[in-house]
Amino acid sequence: MLEIQNITKSYPGPRGVVRALDGISLRVGPGEFVAVRGPSGSGKTTLLLVAGGMLHPDEGRVLAAGHDVYRLPSEARSRLRARAIGFVFQQFHLIPYLTVFENILAPVLAQPNSGARMRAQDLIARLGLEQRRDHRPSELSSGERQRCALARALLHKPGFVLADEPTGNLDDHNGAIVLDFLSEYAASGRALLLVTHEARAAERAHRVVQLEAVVRTP
């Protein structure tokens, strides 16, 4: 379960302080698919990074897998991410010199897992990437890249998945594959927090959270 409590996060900007998140609270339970929507710059990605233990909030706390995430030391937080959280990004962030198979296995670098290769093989098959197993990202289509990134995020069977516009760069067909897969994964008892501005993605969610535009203070 993922719980965000009263989170505030500001950035210094060229025209004053940007308050990206202002007292946000959110709870995503096991098997729940929550979509976060909002205009560009409303703090959707910031919320995801805070929820994933990568961006320290100014105020509030994040509870994940029984831990108060930002009370953990940095190393422990890294281990928590490796063990319990899966990330899917709009830009895929595949490692350019690794094959599809190796990219999917990348989390093993942080969290060794004896069954990882079997699991990766299984995900490749389920996501229709068998023919691309030994290809590099530059040789893949956008849809294939995102499926590869999705497989990587789910390799360790994380308790919750944070997806940032996972279908933003995909056509309808590939977008549907990714959303189906994520919905199916959430339905297996994991939490899914998905940031999107697309209606088709939000429609699949159990709940939709709407973020408003950021506040600038001089």
Partner: peptide
């Protein structure tokens, strides 16, 4: 940079 950000997001520690 992107690779480093990703590896950190995947849980790779600073020391690693």
């Amino acid at each position: 940079r992107s690779e480093i950000g990703l590896l950190r997001a995947l849980g790779l520690r600073s020391r690693q």
